[in-house]
Design a protein around this nucleic acid. Sequence first.
DNA 1: CGAGGCCTTGAACGAAATCAAAGTCAGTGG
DNA 2: CCACTGACTTTGATTTCGTTCAAGGCCTCG
Lengths: 270, 270
Amino acid sequence: MLSTQPVSHEAGRQRQGRLWSNLKEVCDLLHLPPISINSEELLFQHVQFKTGQRVHTIGQPFDMLYVVNSGFLKTVLIDEFGNEQVLAFPMKGDLMGVDGIHNKTYSSEAVALSDCDLVLLPFKKLTTLGRTHVELENMMYGVMSRELVREQAMIGMLGALSAEARVARFLVTLSERFSQMGYSSKLFNLRMTRHEIGSYLGLTLETVSRTLSAFNEIGLISVDQRTIGIKDADALKSLRRLPPSRTRSKLPARAKAAAAEATVPLLATL
Amino acid sequence: MLSTQPVSHEAGRQRQGRLWSNLKEVCDLLHLPPISINSEELLFQHVQFKTGQRVHTIGQPFDMLYVVNSGFLKTVLIDEFGNEQVLAFPMKGDLMGVDGIHNKTYSSEAVALSDCDLVLLPFKKLTTLGRTHVELENMMYGVMSRELVREQAMIGMLGALSAEARVARFLVTLSERFSQMGYSSKLFNLRMTRHEIGSYLGLTLETVSRTLSAFNEIGLISVDQRTIGIKDADALKSLRRLPPSRTRSKLPARAKAAAAEATVPLLATL
DNA sequence: CGAGGCCTTGAACGAAATCAAAGTCAGTGG
DNA sequence: CCACTGACTTTGATTTCGTTCAAGGCCTCG
């Protein structure tokens, strides 16, 4: 489902020995409808990070958002004992740094898991520009809301799914992302360790390893170290195996009033 | 830490037999610095919901944000089998509905756990207004970012903490919220069932119940049905008991390059 | 008073964590 | 070139935390 427009594969152009992208290219990257701004002149600088480098750290003053143009990263929280909690594995098209707006300080740390090329979006520049370009402003709100929805889905997954289901969904999501990026959805390399996957999924590295081996056993995937082959995507997708009886939705008796109309125009959905 | 300014305790004024709040009152509610807009004329309507009523449902067209002025709610995700996953328990000062911006459709459902009074913030109105009032716009971004940070903290908790630690943190957070609202931080009533707490924390209702009983045993709290007394807040706060050896932060060998300067000015934090 | 939610507690089970050991792989330096 | 090192991975054995299943008590509301 990639745009087939003649954007250079490595989006951006050289200038002063450095890559720059215009707003339309950034929108493409974020999978957003392009914005009609006389924007050929409005360029955003790229930056490169090497494997292991930190893009931003916790507590660092916030002024930039980042869009991944190529490469793989992780974002992590670090607790008071130095333990890492992986929050996400940003890759091409993902936005980073939104958590820094509040408090003017990044609340997470972003680390490159491979060499990366990121587009720099100076936040001030964006908001200023947004004030005169409704579309851009809407895009900003939209992207932030999208992040929020993603995190809600993550919470749902951590709260309700078994280890197997989490690993299965992780693989499916990765596969879809790779496919979006134009890589094979059937065969790819993990850029992160079992440990990092485990942290991301709320599991230990051993459980991740064992679960992958088990999927391999029953022919859902093939595993060789970091190389994953997806053999039965449908089975992976439908693998739920959630702790069953939990959390069945039902309105309490006291809620019968809800049938009545609300105090304000309110659609009677459901 | 409440503002001691003479805002009416039940913020807002009567007009046409209904409560309305101006922008300053809304900012107070959200714990944000007040905005200097000639805003006495800019009023936001309140709405009341009865226990059990839904404020918005999944898939319903989005057009409003909501700020809780009084009462207690839950927001939930519902999976394909009708299972509920509690995402949050909004109460006074909390913002709801942000997940609806993306897709123009609410992606979660909000249900009143008690009779509630909510301030309606028509999103269109806010953004239009934000375009001419930088402060308001910044506030919008700030609030959305704050939500994101909260959810990240939630992910961290679900990913890393033991059942006891989750329940302890839940109690501490509740206690602090009650205190903020001017209620006792030492003695309060839960508005939600064990089942709902369990869903929120990624535990079963039995585990929640047992953990509360255990805290009661060792004198950290007193429990009688929905009534909770906090006896040793410090012990609750420091109760971590996280699965120990997990996820210790350490840079991989390949990351030695990180010591070198980044491609862009980058603070050497840590 | 009875019914239905809700909460507690016990006992047994099971999924995932922990502990432990051996194997793989990439990079390094002799 | 090859052996050595250190990080990463796999697999096994054991333990433990939290779930599941079950039964009984409590409280509210009709």
